[in-house]
Simulated scan of single mutants.
Amino acid sequence: MKTMTSTLALAGLAVSAGGAFAQGQTLTINSFGGAYEEAHRECVITPFEEATGATVQIVTAYSADAFAQLRAQASAPQFDVIHFSGGQEIVGAEEGLLSPIDPAALENAGNLYDFARTNLEGGEGPAYSIAAIGLVYNEETAPETPTAWADLMDGTYADHIVLTDISNGYGMLGFLMLNQVQGGSLDDIQPGLDAVSQLLENGAFVVSTSPEIQQEFAQNDAWIAPYASDYAYTLSSAGLPARFVQGEEGTPASFITANLVAGRDNQELATQFIDRTISAEAQACFAEALRYSPTNSTVELADDVAADVVLGAEAVEGLIRFDPIKIEENRSDWVDQWNRTIAR
């Protein structure tokens, strides 16, 4: 991994300049637990604390739960910086829950791909990592390598398919892609539900969390699961023969963002934390630790890491992002329909 000297120097100066007033201050953020939270500490939190003297307090909360807390606490929010992976920043900005960010206040903003900084002034925080959603498969036991989302419907895989509940963000994106391939849209998810019914009849099964996927691959002869590139790396790091492939019909993606919460007093310090998050150093660290795709165009990765991520402006811009507002508007109804489908 190459050092991005000039960019990191600028980021370091920005944080160091705030060190004096940050001493003794506390920022409250959410993180996503498990391996992600470990990487979050290594790549962003600990270096930020060491550089500024501030303390970062972590509340473990996934995107949907964190957003629900943000809404409930609108008059007195607990978070200074809030992280989302399901597009909740778009809704939060519209509802006035997030503060605008002046791009000039972020030393690293100019290095982000355009899509990663589209509406900073409107309150949507920058995207700092991307998880591609495709097919995680067992390269030793799967009878053939899947190449397309449509392969999920191939009886060859039958009772060796693991689906993830759509209360899980990655599970939602995988389902919406399956729905699209089956002829559905965000206005009609019935084709996807019909496909899920067929898969369950053929012996597929549903899990709710990432660790359950690992258990199925390790203990129950799972061959294929629609899920994220970073988790394929988690499985392979655990010694499992798991690999990731993008479906030829397209690759949906989860855009992970860092957002400035409205109504908090220490927004300058919080903005510095966001700037650290979008730095080339932090993004390279996330890519190495978890195989997330960077959004900072100056990031350079070792060949083995680069091979596992979606890298470069053209490749990243070709990813599919389902309308987060539409998802948020329909989430409760879709989960209800999903639950009825899998309960049959």
Rank of each mutant, 00 (worst) to 15 (best):
E89N: 15
A127V: 14
E300W: 01
D154I: 06
A222F: 00
N108Q: 13
R291H: 06
G247K: 05
D165E: 13
D188V: 11
F115L: 13
Q73I: 09
L13D: 03
T295Y: 05
V245T: 10
I29D: 08
F273M: 11
N108E: 15
F21W: 10
A142M: 02
C285M: 02
D304L: 02
S75Y: 08
F175L: 08
V335R: 02
Y231G: 00
P126R: 04
P211H: 01
V310R: 06
Y137E: 05
A127N: 12
F322A: 11
A150T: 14
P324W: 15
A302S: 11
N266G: 12
W334T: 01
V136G: 00
E42K: 06
V207A: 01
P143D: 04
V162W: 00
T298W: 01
Q23R: 10
L163F: 09
L27N: 02
I161M: 07
A131D: 15
D265Q: 11
D308F: 00
S63V: 06
I327N: 09
P211Q: 02
V299N: 00
N339L: 09
E124C: 15
A127G: 12
A74G: 07
Y292E: 00
S16K: 15
Y231Q: 03
E300R: 09
T5R: 07
A270T: 09
F48K: 01
T251A: 12
L193F: 12
I29K: 05
A74F: 07
V196A: 08
A76T: 15
A35T: 10
A307Q: 10
S129M: 12
D275R: 01
G86F: 10
V91H: 06
V59M: 07
A228D: 12
P77V: 14
A280E: 02
Y231H: 09
G125N: 11
G263N: 12
L173W: 01
H83D: 09
T147C: 03
D159M: 05
P126V: 10
L290G: 00
I166L: 09
R41A: 04
T7E: 13
P126Y: 11
N108P: 01
Q23S: 10
S99C: 06
D304V: 04
T52M: 03
A54I: 07
N330G: 11
P143G: 04
A289S: 08
A54E: 03
E248T: 13
E89C: 15
F79V: 12
G96W: 15
F48W: 06
R340D: 11
L178R: 12
Q214C: 00
D151Q: 09
E314S: 15
I342F: 15
S297V: 04
